[in-house]
């Protein structure tokens, strides 16, 4: 692989993070390169969501370094990261329930000052998710699960991210909707956004991604091309239900 010689856009080096005394990540190293889709798969409680929260500094890394665009970001406040293009759609979507759809989207562009650009992006998001346009005056909390997922992704897109961290976008959605969401992820990636995808649904995630990491109880146990992982018998047995 010549990938390792390239400069990654996002990198974790031996990152340890903890909730109180319980260590959730036990020294994770991973690299994300510009323009790709990387997936992190693993069982419940393996530390997938914690990895994303640590990337955004919501959970502080107690050891190790996090690099974004070549710069160490361990001490950058979480609310500064979206302004630099690192944006997350967290687990459970976390829509602002008592803001309308438009207001939710507007919050995604909170730090931006270019109102013309924001308007343009709003239209782009509405084109990507026509459902949201229909519901734009409705409160976020009244949307269905699929619509909330769309809204959460749309909100993240409003910040014009370079790297988009997606936590379990398929959770609780009907299969048809899941497919739609994954198509949209591919579209977004096609527009030049790097995607880090955390998924329980390993099959879909590995099909969609270029590379994958397998997490087990807070450590990376395997990393490879997505297609290789997809055909790895151990992985098939553990995560693909065979």
């Amino acid at each position: 692989m010549n990938q390792d010689s390239r400069q990654p856009i996002l990198e974790l080096r031996n990152v340890v993070s903890a909730y109180g005394r319980i260590r959730a990540l036990k020294g994770i190293s991973l690299k994300v390169f510009d323009g790709e889709i990387v997936t992190i798969i693993g069982a419940n409680g393996a530390g997938k969501s914690t990895t994303l929260m640590t990337m955004c500094n919501v959970v502080k890394a107690v050891e190790g370094d996090i690099f974004y665009k070549g710069e160490r970001i361990n001490d950058v406040a979480p609310d500064q990261l979206p302004t630099r293009g690192l944006c997350q759609v967290p687990e459970g979507r976390r829509i602002f329930p008592r803001l309308t759809v438009t207001e939710n989207l507007d919050m995604g562009a909170f730090f931006r000052r270019d109102s013309a650009g924001i308007k343009e992006d709003l239209e782009r998001v509405y084109d990507l998710f026509p459902k949201l346009r229909e519901r734009r005056r409705q409160l976020g909390g009244t949307l269905s699960g699929g619509e909330q997922q769309m809204l959460a992704m749309g909100r993240a897109l409003m910040s014009r991210p370079r790297v988009l961290l997606l936590d379990e976008p398929s959770m609780g959605l009907a299969p048809l909707l899941v497919k739609q969401i994954f198509d949209i992820i591919a579209t977004i990636n096609g527009q030049g956004v790097t995607v880090v995808l955390v998924e329980q649904n390993a099959n879909l995630a590995l099909q969609c991604a270029q590379r994958g990491y397998v997490l087990e109880t807070g450590s990376v146990v395997m990393e490879d091309e997505a297609s290789a992982l997809l055909h790895n018998p151990d992985i098939r047995k553990a995560y693909l239900g065979e």
Binding site: V58, R98, D106
Partner: peptide, 24 residues
């Protein structure tokens, strides 16, 4: 206003509002 919306967003979900760039 936008700042008012940010206020309500922070009240509803502090972590998420940080993730969209609002300084709580």
């Amino acid at each position: 206003t936008r700042i008012g919306k940010a206020m309500r967003a922070t009240a509803q979900d502090k972590v998420m509002s940080a993730l969209v760039g609002i300084n709580a």
